[in-house]
């Protein structure tokens, strides 16, 4: 198991286009990946758009991405990098 934390930095938060990009990337990995909203101690399957939306991750929210599987390190690192890139906003 491998995990890392970061803070949502783009203005839209994790919904609409950023959410689609996020699950599209997560789905490329075989590992089981969850994204945890640290302020409420709730998590969601990182490959499910609906779960991600229901979790609700606006700008400023701290999250932890946890992956388990063959490509866990690569999965976590690339998803964190995607969040930190602010999804190309501004």
């Amino acid at each position: 198991m491998y995990s890392k934390r970061t803070v949502i930095k783009n203005q839209t938060g994790l919904h609409a286009r950023p959410a689609s990009e996020f699950i599209a990337l997560a789905s490329k990995f075989s590992s089981r990946i969850t994204i945890k909203k640290l302020s409420e101690d709730e998590d969601a399957n990182a490959k499910s758009i609906v779960m991600l939306l229901a979790l609700g991750l606006p700008m400023g929210e701290e999250v932890e991405i946890v992956a388990k599987g063959e490509d866990e390190v690569e999965a976590v690192d690339s998803l964190i990098a995607l969040i930190d890139s602010k999804f190309g906003e501004d």
């Binding site: 286009r17 689609s20 969601a44 399957n45 490959k47 499910s48 758009i49 609906v50």
Partner: peptide, 16 residues
């Protein structure tokens, strides 16, 4: 067109 891309995401949502 993006609306329908989003609908495909929903259709194949892993959790559902």
């Amino acid at each position: 067109a993006k609306i329908f891309t989003a609908h495909q995401d929903i259709l194949f949502d892993v959790a559902m």
